[in-house]
């Protein structure tokens, strides 16, 4: 992997036999988590997320470690999408440390829940410091 350029978070999606692997890179843990949220929205909305509407809402997540935080964060967004038909597309990560985060998010409300993604798994889950930033990987259950 080439050295990371700070402030340029990115992601790519790779097939995983019956599931989907999301590979992330960003200049910081906060940017990585925001990018993970955008990647999830892209999958749930089947394309580039459109403009968010409505008020910002605050979400707080805590986990066992930084990789667990990535999975828990995505699982919270999956839960909100299924139960409230609300897909977060814009993120302002206000605070993050090794095992907790506080974020403001805005998104879109749909007529029907986007049922495509059912869970973020711990299989192959990782968040690693890398030259210039952070990389991460998570497999989604579809």
């Amino acid at each position: 992997m080439t050295p990371l350029e700070r402030d340029l978070p990115s992601h790519d999606l790779a097939d995983h036999v019956s599931e989907l692997r999301v590979r992330l890179r960003a200049g910081s843990h906060a940017d990585l988590l925001a990018e993970a949220g955008r990647a999830l929205a892209e999958i749930q909305l089947r394309g580039t997320p459109g403009g968010a509407t409505g008020d910002w809402r605050r979400l707080e997540i805590s986990a066992h470690d930084s990789a667990g935080l990535l999975a828990d964060w995505l699982n919270e967004l999956i839960f909100l999408a299924e139960t409230e038909r609300w897909v977060a597309t814009e993120f302002d990560v206000e605070q993050v440390d090794g095992s907790s985060m506080r974020v403001r998010a805005r998104g879109v409300t749909l007529d029907q829940a986007p049922g495509l993604v059912k869970a973020a798994t711990l299989h192959g889950l990782r968040v690693d410091d890398a030259p210039g930033g952070v990389t991460g990987e998570v497999v989604l259950d579809l």
Binding site: H64, G68, A71, N75, K118, A119, L122
Partner: peptide, 16 residues
């Protein structure tokens, strides 16, 4: 979704 959430909850708990 109920079963998925049960699995998610307990994989997390046992991981800890």
């Amino acid at each position: 979704g109920l079963g998925h959430q049960v699995c998610t909850d307990y994989v997390r708990r046992m991981d800890q």
